Amino acid sequence: MVMENVMGLKYSSFAIRGIDVSQFNGTIDWTKVSANFSGIRVGYGRTIDTKFKENWLNSKGKVNRIPYWYMDYYSNHTSGATVNGMADADWGKEQAETCWANLKNDPDGSVFLDIENGHPSYSPAISTVSVRAQAIAKAFLERMDELSSKRNGIYCSLGLLNWFNAWFKDRPLWVAWYNENQTPQTVLSSVATNGWLGKCLIWQYASDGDMDDDGAGDGVAMGMAYKTLDLNAWLGTSAQYTELFGKEVQQVALYRIKILIYNLTVRTGPGVLYPRLRRADFPGEYNIYEEKNGFGRISDIKSEWLSLSPDYVQKITTPTPPPAELTDAEKLARLWAAHPELH
């Protein structure tokens, strides 16, 4: 999804982070991608994204994958198109079947239907053909639900939420809204105000790839061929994440730091007013999983933070690789560590 944006948010400020990609990101080096999840475009109409198979295969095991399909709501009403004259419901159903044919042998997550305006050179504004566009969308989602045995979602801009009729509004939502003044809480509030009843799981907050708010795109550093990159934040709960992907969230480190002083305090939250827990190990190194207020979270399961002042820590570029899938015993040990009230 391509939209103009000017942002003031940092990718590192979100505990669960993601990207979304298509052929327009070029050849991707997935070993450089730092994300919990990635949306991957399957295709549109009767066309498969030229990078889909490569991205779907190479990203497996490195991120949790979310397939999305760009809805063609115009070709069956376009003179000269091979599907011109096809009934709207049949066109939606065919797109779902084309999408699923490319996913069924290696499915992951739920499918999100990307609904947005096509370019005016080949399509009318979606608001001028609402009846037919919604008929195509409904047929796609009904057929995809049947094929995948899941309840699939919608991926669209905040401004389009009022366009949908009631049939759609209880579906999982991936919302695009580029506004530097927003927070996850205000996004959820705005989605609800616009009458959406389903779970808003993902917020696409930027498309320029500027991860650290320095005015430059960081797509190349994230393994893309170009600087631009769609950036996303997870807005759902950990339980909803597990429900979508069938696995628990695996925390992804942003980078690693080296402790430079003896008495650096580890606190329960990102700021000097939070209670002290202990001194950081010195000499010592830690992964950083999240940044907030100049502090970094050093634990993947507990709220343990320390100052990221360059006077106290030195950034090491390469983080420790993500852990392998946990055994039941390891999951129990982590639960025990994260919840001392159970002791």
Rank of each mutant, 00 (worst) to 15 (best):
T50V: 15
F282Q: 01
F140P: 15
I298T: 12
L308R: 10
N181D: 11
D145T: 06
Y312L: 10
R17G: 01
W56R: 03
F52V: 07
L147I: 09
G217Q: 04
G18Q: 03
T320E: 10
W203R: 06
W91P: 02
S110N: 13
A324Y: 12
I259N: 00
F24N: 10
Y11I: 07
R256D: 07
R334E: 12
W336E: 09
K199L: 04
I202R: 05
K138V: 04
V175T: 06
S13K: 13
V21Y: 07
L9W: 11
T31I: 02
R17F: 13
A96G: 02
L254S: 00
P67D: 04
S189R: 08
G92I: 09
N263Q: 15
N293Q: 14
H119D: 14
T228D: 12
W177K: 11
V266N: 05
Y286F: 03
I136V: 13
L260A: 00
I288V: 06
F140A: 01
T31G: 10
A337E: 09
G159W: 14
F282P: 08
M224Y: 04
D311I: 13
E180F: 13
R41D: 04
D145C: 01
P322G: 01
S238N: 12
D213S: 11
V252N: 01
G39M: 00
E285S: 05
A35I: 14
